[in-house]
């Protein structure tokens, strides 16, 4: 079952409808199975829209998206989202305990057997203390909440994990720790990870493939180390050379 890959061909979204803004234009992209791919780019470049197409939270007006060897339009929504989990930028725990969230995920994905073991394993992968299982969201720090949503995404053992700026709301130290966990996660599990970030230093740190989106188009792609050390000239270099790194955040060119 290793045909895991996502093809995204000629995506165009419609300017006439509120949820179909033309954020992506002619994106043609294949993500390798079992690897880590970073989608980087300035704000408003269509990064989030792109990953929301993979689990079909949004719909393109033209183009096709193949996930795990099948067009998303041919997946039943429940089956697709059982295989493709997502962690949003804002940690969205549904109003109950961490355990309640993980159990809800298990029950929705139909994996009700062996719940304790699965929960335990997911908490380990997200590097979250199992003592926090019975805490409600209001008694967790932002970092713990984000780890809890990561555990919730992992508990169902998905094939693909989509991460939408998972460190955006975290302070630098917590963000570092989160990246360490993600790095460890990549080594521990055979999982395809697609991660959106506008801090490309995160990509440099975790390695893997990098796709640079600028104004809804793929401006560059390649291996993290190669691309980040020797970026092509033009807007990609402008973007990668500093403006959007964590340390030098800001809009000064």
């Amino acid at each position: 079952m290793r045909g895991v890959q996502r093809d995204v061909d000629d995506l165009t979204t419609d300017p006439d409808q509120p949820n179909r803004v033309r954020l992506l234009d002619g994106v043609d992209l294949t993500v390798t199975a079992g690897g880590l791919t970073h989608i980087v780019g300035p704000s408003g470049s269509g990064k989030t829209t792109l990953i929301r197409l993979i689990n079909r939270l949004d719909e393109p007006t033209a183009g096709t998206i193949d996930v795990l060897g099948r067009p998303v339009t041919q997946w039943a929504p429940r089956d697709l989202r059982r295989r493709v989990a997502m962690v949003f930028q804002e940690p969205t725990l549904i109003g109950m305990t961490v355990r309640g969230n993980l159990e809800a995920a298990l029950s929705l994905s139909g994996r009700v057997d062996d719940a304790e073991r699965r929960i335990d394993e997911a908490m380990k992968l997200a590097e979250l203390d199992t003592a926090l299982l019975d805490r409600t969201a209001d008694r967790l720090s932002v970092g713990q909440k984000q780890r809890a949503t990561l555990a919730r995404a992992l508990v169902t053992e998905p094939d693909v994990l989509l991460l939408d700026e998972p460190t955006a709301g975290l302070d630098p130290r917590t963000a570092e720790a989160m990246l360490d966990s993600l790095s460890a996660l990549r080594d521990k599990r055979d999982l395809t990870i697609v991660m959106v970030t506008h801090h490309h230093d995160e990509a440099a740190r975790l390695g893997g493939a990098v796709v640079v989106l600028i104004d809804g188009r793929v401006a560059a792609r390649g291996d993290a180390a190669t691309l980040l050390n020797d970026p092509p000239t033009g807007p990609v270099r402008d973007f990668l050379r500093g403006q959007h790194t964590r340390k030098t955040s800001g809009d000064t060119p």
């Binding site: 939270l57 089956d79 059982r82 989990a85 949003f88 804002e90 969205t92």
Partner: peptide, 12 residues
């Protein structure tokens, strides 16, 4: 956002 989080978890 809450509703979409549930949808992403394969909720109807």
């Amino acid at each position: 956002a809450d509703v979409e989080a549930m949808l992403a978890m394969s909720a109807s």
